[in-house]
């Protein structure tokens, strides 16, 4: 099974929504630490906040890949063979 067809099966809309919610949560945590600069908010911003940022962006990146894989006539935009794909599956759970 090629990487392309594997990706094509992924839930693009869900990925995008997850990206949005993760980023919104990250923004909330980070903004809160600026308004209330106390120990726990500041620590949360630099840990949970950053992780949510990365998760959100990863979901977005995956969603774009899925879109490229499913777009008709975009065959050459991704390597056609099943070269060992970056093992980033867990992110699909969102």
């Amino acid at each position: 099974m090629s990487l392309r067809s594997k990706l094509a099966g992924w839930p693009q809309a869900l990925l995008l929504r997850s990206a949005c919610y993760a980023v919104l949560a990250a923004l909330a945590v980070m903004s809160y630490s600026i308004v209330v600069p106390k120990p726990l908010p500041v620590i949360a911003a630099m840990s949970v906040g950053h992780v949510l940022c990365v998760v959100g962006f990863a979901c977005f990146g995956l969603a774009v890949l899925v879109e490229m894989a499913t777009r008709p006539g975009a065959r050459s935009s991704l390597p056609p063979t099943s070269k060992p794909a970056p093992k980033s599956e867990p992110a699909s759970k969102g």
Binding site: M30, I34, P37, V42, G49, G56, F57
Partner: peptide, 25 residues
């Protein structure tokens, strides 16, 4: 647009809020 919304801007916020947070401590 989304690249900005979920990528560039949040990254900027992450970096800036870290410097602000470190200063606050």
């Amino acid at each position: 647009t989304l690249l900005f919304g979920v990528g560039v801007l949040p990254a900027a916020v992450a970096i800036a809020s870290t410097t602000v947070g470190m200063q606050a401590t």
